[in-house]
Write a protein that binds this DNA or RNA. Sequence first.
RNA 1: GCUGGAUUCGUCUAGUUGGCCCAGGACGUCAGGUUUUCAUCCUGAAAAUCGGGGGUUCGAAUCCCCCAUCCAGUACCA
Length: 505
Amino acid sequence: MNKVRVRFAPSPTGPLHIGGVRTALYNYLFAKQNGGDFLLRIEDTDQTRFVPGAEEYIIEAFQWLGIQFDEGVGIGGPFGPYKQSERKPMYKQYADYLIENGWAYYAFDTPEALDAKRKEAEAQKKTFQYDANTRGSLCNSLTLSEEEVKQRVASGAPYVVRFKYPADLDITVHDLIRGDVTINSNLLDDKVLFKSDGMPTYHLANIVDDHTMEISHVIRGEEWLPSAPLHVMLYKAFGWEAPAFAHLPLLLKPDGNGKLSKRDGDRLGFPVFPLQWTDPKSGDISSGYRESGYLPEAVINMLALLGWNPGTEQEIMDLDTLVKLFSIENISKSGAKFNLEKAKWFNHQYIQMAPMERLLPMFEAELAKHGVKAEPEFLSYVAQLMRERVHFIPEFWEQTSYFFVAPTEYDPQAVKKRWKPGTAVHLRKMMEIVESVQPFSKEQAHDLVMEYVQGNELNMGAIMNSFRIALVGAAKGPDLFEIIYAIGVTETARRVERAIQTIEP
RNA sequence: GCUGGAUUCGUCUAGUUGGCCCAGGACGUCAGGUUUUCAUCCUGAAAAUCGGGGGUUCGAAUCCCCCAUCCAGUACCA
């Protein structure tokens, strides 16, 4: 059996969509599981759609995700170049080969002429197709004399090369996920393989590259299934052995129907792209998983399970585990809707599992965004205490700001509910007790304060929450004495006074 | 329209040789518990007549047929 070689082949037309990331992930898992190679090829045959920065974005995204390519753009390798625009000179000979062997023909019809045909057909509620039925009445090397064709080509007249399907042929694509898919060639149209600008289309370039790069398995999105018959015919025409195909189900939008799109993310509050992306033309910013505070492992785990499962009830799997457990047979056939809540859960899981030394720099960066610089030891203490509450990295600030900055506002709801008349008196007393514990001890302070609360028959919930409101600004947070210990008794006293002055002057 | 693909709890899914499935797990939801509060955490519950209708069979989510719905493709885009 040939070596497993798979590829991820995006076009640099914008940021990498999360569905594309999943496709790449499945390719990667399959390659690694089989000791094969995983390559990155950039399919930039459409120069009009090229977006600057997109290629760099793709490479950076996979770096962040920890998915490594063995060969390809940005890495190199024995089958380069890996960018189709740089392979341009080699495609024409393949188109010529097809023409010489009767598998393709020159077509001179102008885009306008074809457009008119389509409109005409549409008016009759039909679809115009360039196929065995119509190619005999159009302007191409099948209808023009050999002399005329030669002349046109020699004179530099624009032309495209179209594939010539044999008539009435049942073409079967064997798909690893869906089984055999068969379609009759009469229903297919003569796809353009080579464009008038001298570039191949996806179909030609893809087949030529997959073959010359010795790709063994083509794992790609379901949107390619309809053109798979063309691809198998192309392999046949060239006399090449076709790779195995697997067409992945699509990623759907969380509400309603249809493919997940860029707009859905912004609308529903979750990223559709791995990294934040600024559109070079409009300046529009699309959020990214990285910037939204997702851990790459969580994104990978979540994505892996969107359309695949290990066949067991295991859900938390790192990349290495996924490599071991992945199997194409367990990929589902229908599209999967993205689920934000589950994504959140995954991220929470991974934040709890991550080693502290990974989390710390991220937490530190969050603080920096708010102009706070903490001592490493203090940060570490707070992180240890608070990390179980964090679902996304930016939440770290929301959950812990009061460890670093005294509250300036007090949640009115909490105050209304907990702060009773006379609270100030008791808080000052309790503060005295806390200050009397020298040196400070969480346990001792706790016991003495409790003694006071019980001795005076105070409402525990009310008084302790008032204390909390003074320190935190709201009715939330970890154990009160942990907070006192962290911010210090002096700061605690200052906050208590300030709260009293503000709430009960 | 045409062609292809898909169809199990709200969501992701298990179920692949028909019986152990009056359908299992996870997320979410709800109810309890833990906690001075919030979050976490723990326990439990509700939640799919397996898209619909016909068959085949002692027995079907699993096999056959028809229908419906959704998605994709239908470019000199990938």
